[in-house]
């Protein structure tokens, strides 16, 4: 299974006792996917604040959800004050 392959580009640099759990790409758990409407987004970062996966990247000033880890819990869609996150069905590729 390539699921646990180490990805030096994407693994968080917080390796204390060996290796980070960031090797574990939990994105494969997801059945629904959040989609941010970039035009409606007010950059309030509330989605980042409440993400239990800590997988919303806000470094660029615009929230970017890392689909490698997002489990599709839909908390971001629930808490977004601008109502700009929509959950869409994942389709098999």
């Amino acid at each position: 299974m390539p699921r646990l392959a180490f990805d030096p580009e994407k693994t968080a640099p917080i390796l204390i006792s060996g290796r980070s759990m960031a090797e574990n790409k939990t994105g494969i758990w997801r059945s629904i996917r959040p989609q941010i409407d970039k035009e409606k987004c007010t950059h309030c970062m509330v989605c980042w604040k409440y993400c239990p996966e800590a997988c919303v990247d806000i470094a660029s000033g615009i929230p970017e959800i890392n689909m490698g880890y997002c489990k599709g819990c839909a908390i971001c869609a629930d808490v977004c004050p601008a109502d700009c996150v929509e959950m869409v069905e994942e389709v098999a590729r």
Binding site: A12, M21, A22, E23, K25, W29, E53, G68, C73
Partner: peptide, 8 residues
Amino acid sequence: SAGHLACQ
């Protein structure tokens, strides 16, 4: 870190 084993 992301990738932890918690439920959604």
